[in-house]
Amino acid sequence: MGDSLDQFLADNERQAFRMAQLAIGHRDDALDIVQNAMIKLVQKYANRDADQWGPLFHRIVQRQITDWYRRKKVKQQIFGIFQNNDEQAGSYFEEYEDPVERVPDKLLQSEQAISVLEKALQELPMRQRQAFLLRCWQGMSTKQTAQAMGCSDGSVKTHYHRALSSLRTVLGEAWP
């Protein structure tokens, strides 16, 4: 059980991290989200069937992301929205690793592509971004996405369609 859960987490942790980072735009907080999600999964659902871990893990990660936004909103209300926005925008772009040391041209091109996509994703409302990442990247069905997001199938369809349309409009020229 322990070994297989370890393997499950090892297989999913990087995608979960990128998902959280894309959702909130902050590396350290994304790491916290993934760690907390892993702890919850281990503590509460380790004895479930392995095929349930995937949907549960995504559900927990999405819940953590939503909570992060709630906390952020409260902080903004307390400390002032403009100050926090400036800080957030700054920290977001500072979090990317420097690709120069690690890669030649191809990977640099890939870094640029993800950078463009990330910026476009950041412009989307949270729910549209979640729907896009779960449906398009994770390959979840509408129903699975609805379960992970805690909303109806219809809402997922609406969010996803709007996200796709917005991204295609924004990335139309820049997309490789």
Partner: peptide
């Protein structure tokens, strides 16, 4: 980042 995720996983498993 991968190293931090690895650490996070071990922390999670030890919590369990």
């Amino acid at each position: 980042t991968q190293s931090k995720l690895n650490q996070a996983r071990h922390v999670a498993l030890s919590h369990g």
